[in-house]
């Protein structure tokens, strides 16, 4: 066991890591089932990604390449802090901002634009693991509902949405049925990212530190967002008033998930790729093309 700054490798003691790994195995064996585990105290506030961090620390080993992102950005405070904590406590690992280089990606609120492969592992930080908590306050009853796949009340919520707003207004945490049984809260990723979980080559692990739950979408597993037969699930279209797809003002990408912000000088609404790594790649490719053109 390597020592660093008086802490064991990965900060957690071996028993804690073993427990997390066991829970992960159980979560993979029961796709979508929320496995309870004894979430440890971490040197940061719960709600700042401690669930994701414990998964990362329990699964990472020397030689691994880690990427940490927060809303698509590698440079936000939360991402930087988590990354340096893992670097500090796990000597021998490498870090990267490049999606394709990473063997383990810990993320908050996004799944990278670039398709993941079967040698990669995605860890998502989860604030609220149970999609039923909005319709049923009692956890006992929620457990029974999950067991019986009694999810009609989630569809009632969709029904009410359509009645009130003429469309499904859930933008994040869209209830998604895994492997035909359990419905999960896929963490606050946008609707746009939900289809990326479906039949994904990479294993996705979801960890809720405060709520003490771990669950998984195993590789090549169905992940189907709930919907009505006649009103299918759809992702954000990013179309303007004329029905044209908006483009990233930086790289010109027409297919990525866009962040909207307001130019402080002109007051104009601007759109830019939320996934910075992706945006940089597109930018490089365009520049490269331009160079070739010349």
């Amino acid at each position: 066991m390597s020592q660093n700054n008086g802490y064991p490798f990965g900060f957690l003691d071996e028993y804690a890591k073993k427990e997390v790994r066991r829970s992960v195995l159980k979560a993979i064996a029961l796709p979508g089932y929320q496995v309870p585990y004894s979430s440890r105290e971490m040197p940061m506030g719960r709600g700042f990604g401690t669930g994701g961090l414990q998964l990362t620390l329990a699964l990472i080993g020397p030689g691994e390449v880690l990427k940490v992102i927060d809303q698509g950005s590698d440079d936000s405070v939360n991402a930087v802090n988590l990354r340096s904590f893992v670097e500090l406590t796990c000597p021998g690992i490498a870090t990267t901002a490049k999606t394709e280089e990473a063997s383990l990606i810990q993320s908050r609120h996004r799944i990278p634009e670039k398709a993941l492969n079967d040698r990669q592992l995605l860890v998502l930080q989860v604030p609220y693991p149970d999609p039923l908590s909005v319709v049923e306050p009692s956890e006992d009853r929620r457990k029974a509902m999950h067991g019986e796949a009694d999810y009609a009340r989630l569809l009632v919520k969709l029904y009410e949405d359509i009645v009130k707003f003429k469309e499904i207004t859930i933008s994040h945490r869209y209830p998604t049925r895994i492997n035909g049984h359990y419905i999960i809260d896929p963490s606050p990723i946008p609707r746009f990212d939900v289809p990326k979980l479906h039949q994904s080559a990479a294993l996705a692990l979801l960890g809720a530190g405060r709520e003490k739950k771990i669950y998984a979408v195993p590789p090549y597993t169905d992940a189907v967002p709930i919907a009505f037969d006649d009103i299918p699930f759809r992702i954000e279209d990013f179309n303007d008033d004329q029905g044209r797809r908006r483009t990233c003002q930086r790289c010109g990408c027409q297919t990525s998930y866009l962040d909207e912000f307001i130019d402080s000088t002109s007051g104009e609404k601007l759109y830019q790729c939320s996934d910075i790594d992706w945006c940089n790649d597109q930018l490089t490719a365009t520049q490269h093309l331009e160079e070739v053109d010349i």
Binding site: A152, R153, V156, D229, D230
Partner: peptide
């Protein structure tokens, strides 16, 4: 709708 959804109908209209 809730009762119909519980009974397995999932066609909004």
């Amino acid at each position: 709708a809730e009762r119909l959804l519980v009974a397995g109908d999932s066609h909004y209209q």
